[in-house]
Write a protein that binds this DNA or RNA. Sequence first.
DNA 1: ATGGCGCGGGGTCCGCGA
Length: 252
Amino acid sequence: MRICTFNVNSIRSRLEIVQNLLKDYDIDVICMQEIKVDNENFPLIDGEYQCIIHGQKRLHGVATCSRYPIDEYQNGFDGEVSEPRFVYTLINGVHIINIYAPLGDNYGERFEYKMYFYDKLFEYLKKFDLNKDKVLICGDFNISHTELDVWDEEIWQGEVTHLPEERAILSKFLDIGFIDVIREKFKNEKVFTFYDYRGAAVYKNEGLRLDYILVTKPLFEKFKDVEILTQIRRKRKPTPSDHVPVIAEFDL
DNA sequence: ATGGCGCGGGGTCCGCGA
């Protein structure tokens, strides 16, 4: 089973890239973030895939598309009426949570909303037995966990995505039993999943790792490999997203 | 590609992203 997470920065602008990705990398499930479209106008990516969409006009939005049957789903947290940033699906026995976390800011209103978002997520996780269930959380967390996740630790010290409270949230996922499969593979190596469009960041390797695939131990036992498709970000045509697709493979 | 941001809304700029 091959699961991809990809912040597409508009699905309508990235349709060709996504379609080629599904085909070239034999993807079973794709979790997309920042689709930037309402549910009605979400394009058909491939007739083989069924999509659970949580979108709105212009900003944010997530969608999970699968060529395996989707046995259960929920788009949006319980009672959530604000920004569309969450889709849950149950696919092939794996509880897949697709998130687009708010960016936040330096201790202003958006910082509070980011903390609120993660509170809601941890609340949602209480319905699972993390020691027994196969749970996968993936997406754009908008957090760079450690110095290995930023291209320049000094520059990013005290900046949004790398604030102590944000880094602590990522550590909390690990504390309650999740495993960061990218970090598991690239133990002491700087690897990035985001490069700002501005300032030629990708050509200078000035990246951040903001995207994660976190899995519980029962699923980690089936983990085979993870790939970060940086080459797609480096191409000029078709215009890439500022984020990089990441694919994890499981023996399921 | 020898450089350097891209997206959607209803637009010929603005707000947003990180």
